[in-house]
Design a protein around this nucleic acid. Structure first.
Length: 635
RNA sequence: GCACCCGUAGCUCAGUGGAUAGAGCGUUCGCCUCCGGAGCGAAAGGUCACAGGUUCGAGUCCUGUCGGGUGCGCCA
């Protein structure tokens, strides 16, 4: 192509003036602009309507950069062969100047772009996403406050935390909530276990939640003896009552704070903790039941199986159930877990108010963590237009019932806005875990082990590392998070140490390594004083184009992840981007010499490569950030 | 019994109805006198569980079958 300065103008024919692309503040939306041009051509052909226009990257070994199969989808209605339609489109299409060559291949209409444009576009910052209306209330973690977190919880936290980050990135207002089931049987069992075994103080070196967890497991062992079981059962019941009365809040609090250390170390933070006991004490449960009692689907039978209980008939909303009746209030007057969940859901969606909050903690990022509390003040939490519950797939039915309660209440509009992010269980070396039996691997243990392994890798590969401890922490925890996030949520994961803590191949450290390595180039460029060299994009080669195309996919990948509420889409994208960069980095000419050196490239081209490396770093860092993974400068 | 999820290379997994189905691990062979080898290149490895159907076009949508997981309590 004819050589041009990097201030080359790329205007669209439809515009009254042209501007140098270097004054563009942010990335042009290539696919949208191509779609618009295609739509215009379809109109020019006299069409009134057409199926959705798809523009996609061409497969690696095909000609062109982008292409559309739109001609094929029109073949039937136009009663013409796709290549003919594509050719007609080609005749009528008005394309931006940055399309170097449009052409027909089979039934496809493909576009080859100016390499200089493509590469420069990739180096421009992403336009911020427009803010979307409405608040999303995302609940995740919600671990029973009775023992240490295990790898099953790990998946929940990673999914929830990443999804919150992704949604915020695309402009959503997200409130992250962690539900504290402080009046449940599990908490009662743990607290009673301490009493039963006469345990008062944890050894200094033992993390409190682990210590309590041990007592819990021990209690379940003791319960195998019928004699002890009766006595324990009585104790647990009285502990339950004390919990409900709020007498043991401090004891629960102590466990919760220990658990929070694990969540923080993973990088998860929350806006608010909502305690189950507060929902009851503030009267939300009562109000929710009162509301439901007004529904024709809720009744208090005087005879039969459910005599004396308050039950909800879900058959109109959940078809095919053998027994569609769900007990809300037992005949002994106590409420079920589901009833409390319904009250919480009503609060989340603004049907109920009345929770009061205090500042509970300052999180590692400096952000405050709020918590419901009897002595708190009203704060504008809840009242969301959409909710996301990150909960184990085994609870799908329970969540469906909560959703149905909104329909029972006559609010199908709200029911529609409840999303259950259901993830499959995590197996441990092929077996189901059991908290009660203590067949678990704790999150703390997994992170410790990961960091320990990274530490030895660093000692071996980079003994002069300036801050090995910090890096080991970032890489070890990053590996664990990535292992939890790279797979689709609805697939069962078998947690195996050797896979989860691998640092090679499709892993977090692979991506972090790509980032660190790119940073190393920039540091050297800085030393050599070439870091700000002006790029001459007309010198871009196919190597730069390939990397640029991968970079350009980032916003789309994040949008996809947000729309599908699927963090693994971001994880998979980052693997692809890191691979594209590694491939660029190692590219060789046919005679085996380095094809893409950055620092020793000719002036102008060096500037292009430096800009690409900067864009790559920025994108990797943002992308890792969406997964809650740090981007270490040196590994 | 009914309902939901899954089935893609030896293993672990990607794959908005669109072009010759892609990675990692493992196996085999190459690559540091270039900026980090936690890396790169290449080879081998596929009846996308099976059978029908819808469509110009199906790994992707629909129906059925088989296999695996899970759920259907006045438990939480």
């Amino acid at each position: 192509m004819v050589s041009r300065a990097h201030t080359t103008v790329w205007g669209s024919p439809g515009e009254s003036f042209c501007y140098p692309i270097s004054v563009l503040a942010s990335r042009p939306e290539i696919k949208s602009q191509l779609k618009a041009a295609i739509a215009q051509a379809l109109e020019a052909l006299g069409l009134q309507e057409w199926p959705e226009i798809i523009v996609q990257e061409t497969p690696p070994d095909k000609e062109g950069d982008y292409g559309t199969p739109v001609a094929m989808s029109l073949a039937r209605t136009l009663r013409k062969a796709p290549p003919q339609i594509a050719a007609d489109l080609l005749q009528n299409i008005q394309l931006p100047a940055w399309v170097r060559r449009p052409f027909v291949v089979g039934g496809y209409l493909n576009f080859e772009l100016e390499p200089a444009f493509l590469v420069q576009a990739a180096t421009l910052p992403i336009a911020p996403f427009p803010r979307a209306a409405g608040k999303v209330l995302l609940e995740h973690t919600s671990v029973n406050p009775n023992k240490e977190l295990h790898v099953g919880h790990l998946r929940n936290i990673c999914l929830g935390d990443s999804l919150a980050r992704i949604l915020r990135f695309v402009g959503r207002d997200v409130e992250v909530m962690n539900y504290i089931d402080d009046t449940g049987r599990q908490a009662a069992e743990s607290l009673y276990a301490l009493q039963y075994f006469g345990l008062t103080e944890a050894p200094a070196q033992t993390k409190y939640d682990h210590w309590v967890g041990e007592a819990y497991v021990r209690l379940h062992q003791a319960m195998e003896d019928p004699e002890q079981k009766a006595r324990i059962e009585q104790g647990v019941q009285s502990t339950l009552h004390r919990l409900e009365a709020g007498e043991l809040r401090d004891a629960v609090d102590k466990i919760l704070r220990a658990q929070l250390q694990t969540m923080y170390r993973l990088g998860a933070e929350y806006n608010a903790l909502v305690w189950e006991s507060d929902i009851v004490r503030e009267g939300l449960l009562g109000k929710a039941m009162k509301i439901l009692e007004g529904s024709p689907y809720v009744a208090r039978p005087t005879e039969g199986k459910y005599a004396g209980a308050l039950v909800m008939d879900t058959s109109a909303f959940i078809p095919g159930l053998e027994d569609p009746y769900l007990v809300l209030i037992r005949s002994n007057g106590t409420s079920t877990y589901t009833a409390k969940d319904i009250a919480l859901q009503f609060w989340k969606m603004g049907l109920l108010e009345g929770l009061r909050f205090v500042t509970y903690d300052t999180q590692p990022s400096g952000a405050p963590l709020y918590s419901t509390h009897p002595e708190g003040v009203p704060l504008p939490f809840g009242g969301a237009s959409e909710t996301i519950n990150v909960v184990d797939a085994r609870q799908s039915h329970a969540l469906r019932v909560v959703q149905a309660s909104l329909e029972v209440e006559g609010r199908p509009d709200l029911a529609e806005k409840c999303f259950h992010l259901a993830y499959e269980t995590v197996l441990l070396e092929g077996r189901q875990m059991s908290g009660r039996k203590g067949i678990v691997v704790s999150v703390d243990e997994v992170m410790d082990e990961a960091v320990k392994r990274v530490r030895s890798v660093i000692a071996e590969k980079n003994p002069d590392h300036p801050s090995p401890e910090e890096a080991a922490e970032q890489i070890g925890v990053g590996a664990v998070r990535f292992a939890m996030l790279k797979t689709e949520a609805k697939k069962q994961i078998d947690f195996r140490y050797d896979q989860a803590l691998s640092f090679e191949g499709d892993t977090g450290p692979y991506i972090q390594y790509a980032y660190a390595r790119a940073g190393s180039i920039l540091r050297k460029a800085e030393e050599q004083g070439v870091i700000q060299e002006a790029p001459d994009f007309t010198q871009a080669t196919p190597y730069e184009v390939a990397l640029a195309k991968s970079l350009l996919r980032f916003p789309e990948a994040v949008q996809d992840a947000a729309r599908n509420k699927a963090p693994h889409i971001v994880a998979q994208y980052l693997l692809e981007l890191a691979a594209a960069w590694s491939s660029f980095y190692n590219a060789k000419t046919p005679d085996g010499r380095p094809a893409t050196p950055v620092l020793t490239a000719p002036p102008g081209l060096r500037g292009v490569r430096l800009e690409l490396v900067k864009a790559l770093r920025q994108t990797l860092k943002q992308g890792l950030g969406l997964l809650g993974i740090a981007a270490p400068e040196v590994m």
